[in-house]
Design a protein around this nucleic acid. Structure first.
Lengths: 356, 356
DNA sequence: GTGAAAGCGCTAACAT
DNA sequence: ATGTTAGCGCTTTCAC
């Protein structure tokens, strides 16, 4: 069926005594071709196992049916889900995915941008590192539709889809307050990204609305960046260290909101070692609703992030731009997260919550 | 710097009054070119922000500098790590990554194979679904070097890299036995893949060596396949259900070896609900050493899988084949996992183990 | 309804 | 050391 060299349109044309052109149109479903001819060509293509050469096709057309996907770290469960969602949607529309991992490093980002350019991707979905270097301007400049994910770079004017992190942190904090917390501490990654700035803003808003003070030191950074290596999970450990220091130093807060569910793991351990009980001594609220969150003990109240929805929206925006549309939609789209209440913030009804 | 149309070799040739060919060689670092000319060309390329068109290059050369990576489910932490590792290594050698997700479905697999073919990838790394359909033969048939990951298809003759699952399960079981277990139960996914068959074999070997019986029903399937949807984490929940049934029915085993750490979460919950203590009433051993394993309470003894090593080895094999080498290495390469002992199998020293 | 010709941007072979 | 020619496999334009 298939030999060592791939068959081309020319091969089929030759055996059928047709022109390459005719074969091309027969297979691409264009009209202006006899039904018998079309059937003939299709049969022969089938027989020899013809597979079109996308390189040639894309070269003529000026762009490949490929989307570039630039992610900081696929080992983050949130991004893993995102990748699946994006791949599924892209595939459904006939696009392949070129995956580039930046590992939160600007150097990689510059190379990633060039890689997408070289490959003539027809669109790009990018989680930018948000550093000093501007690696993504060129994509737009040469006409590659680009959508930013989760971290905005407003000056580029690209469309943006992300989670409403401000709202998420607000919900988390407000929930803690509603359950009686008067002092709340936030544990966040030390990345200089808007994601985190927004969460802190949400936290402050909730506190302000409740008329609660936010003393200095209420937002604690967990140093993770220098450990960034996409293949390694480092976060619970680092959060554990930071949490231990926190428990030694300060007066105990009533609740801790952490930047991701891994942090909650480290915090849980530190608290256990100090003989503190969650939620009785201290409430914990996570971010992410990672697969394990509902199965910890106590199960973790956490902000579920709409990873798949964010991903598919990004693809849709790209498809829309490729189709020429800029259908009046706003540049910036924020998708609301959902607070999933579990045991780590108390169980007022006395029953064990259902895992989610 | 960059305008809407990308610059080509021709553009540079025109402005410098050189032939396209000369420019090409100047930039590609071939010799037989004047140093001044080369400098001139490079400067101009830099000035206009020249980016080579890989489509054209690959079309001429017959294959793209791209590897196809076919994964069943990126939301599995093991595969997430694998992806990172592969991407890093491939990138270091100048290869991009075309990612295709199969979601354990044969239909997707057939389409995936064709997608790689269309894109003229220069190599493929594949985690096959191991179903009835033979989607991967054609790749090899048209000369695309292909490496199978984790699940072998020996009849294809492709190189294979994977984890030594037999050994992993053996270690896990032997460890439980060494800690006093006389009856051991295995909870595995219901996928018809060699991975799982091998683990069961390892389990049986350990039991046999210890002179222990393996009664019927010692291997329990957790139905996950029908839920397969790469973007959704379903496993703890399913394992929880199965574990609950197990606890109602049978006499209590001394230890349970589970197919992945998610299952351990479900099992933990079921045990807690039955008022059973780990490890005192029952030991639990996981598979995967997912990032949370060391932070559960009790922390989970588990088989750490060499995801990154498997991934980079796969890339190296591909590079080797592309370089023409088939350097006498065996077709099949198994990398040994490591048992990480933590609290869930008892703490003979009475001290809390360190998280890993 | 079908064919011939041109060209996408690049590299390789063969000039000079 | 540089230029010319040809061609990778496909689609588009324009004849017939």
């Amino acid at each position: 069926m298939a030999e060592l060299r791939r068959h081309t349109l020319r091969d089929i044309a030759l055996t059928l005594n047709l022109s390459v052109n005719t074969v091309s149109r027969a297979l691409s479903g264009k009209d202006g071709i006899g039904e018998k001819t079309r059937a003939l060509v299709r049969a022969e293509a089938e027989r020899v196992g013809y597979v079109p050469n996308s390189l040639a096709r894309s070269l003529v057309l000026g762009s490949a049916t490929t989307f570039g996907l630039v992610i900081t770290n696929p080992s983050n469960p949130y991004y893993a889900q995102l990748i699946s969602g994006i791949e599924l949607r892209a595939k459904a529309h006939g696009y392949s995915l070129l995956l580039v991992v930046t590992d939160e490093a600007e150097e990689n980002e510059a190379r990633a941008a060039e890689s997408l350019l070289r490959s003539s991707v027809s669109g790009a979905i990018v989680v930018p590192v948000q550093g000093q270097v501007d690696s993504w301007r060129r994509l737009g400049a040469v006409g590659v539709p680009t959508v930013l994910l989760n971290r905005d770079l407003p000056h580029l004017g690209y469309r943006f889809v992300g989670t409403d992190n401000e709202l998420g942190a607000y919900q988390a904090t407000a929930h803690a307050v509603a359950r009686g917390a008067r002092s709340v501490i936030v544990l966040e990654e030390d990345l200089p990204i808007t994601t985190i700035a927004n969460r802190i803003a949400g936290f402050r808003r909730a506190m302000a609305e409740a008329g609660l003070l936010v003393p200095r030191g209420s937002v604690i950074s967990v140093p993770t960046r220098r450990y960034h290596h996409a293949a390694l999970p480092w976060q619970p450990e680092e959060a554990y260290r930071v949490a231990r220091r926190m428990l030694r130093r300060s007066r105990l807060p009533d609740a801790v909101v952490v930047g991701n569910d891994y942090f909650a793991l480290g915090l849980y351990r530190a608290l256990a070692e100090h003989g503190l009980k969650v939620p009785d001594d201290l409430m914990v609220i996570g971010f992410g609703d990672y697969p394990f969150a509902g199965f910890l003990s106590p199960s973790l109240t956490t902000v579920r992030l709409p990873a798949v929805e964010v991903g598919t929206t990004a693809v849709d925006l790209l498809l829309d731009e490729i189709a020429g549309g800029r259908g009046g939609q706003p540049r910036k789209q924020l998708i609301a997260p959902t607070l999933v209440v579990r045991e780590s913030t108390g169980r007022p009804d006395g029953r064990r919550p259902i895992a989610g």
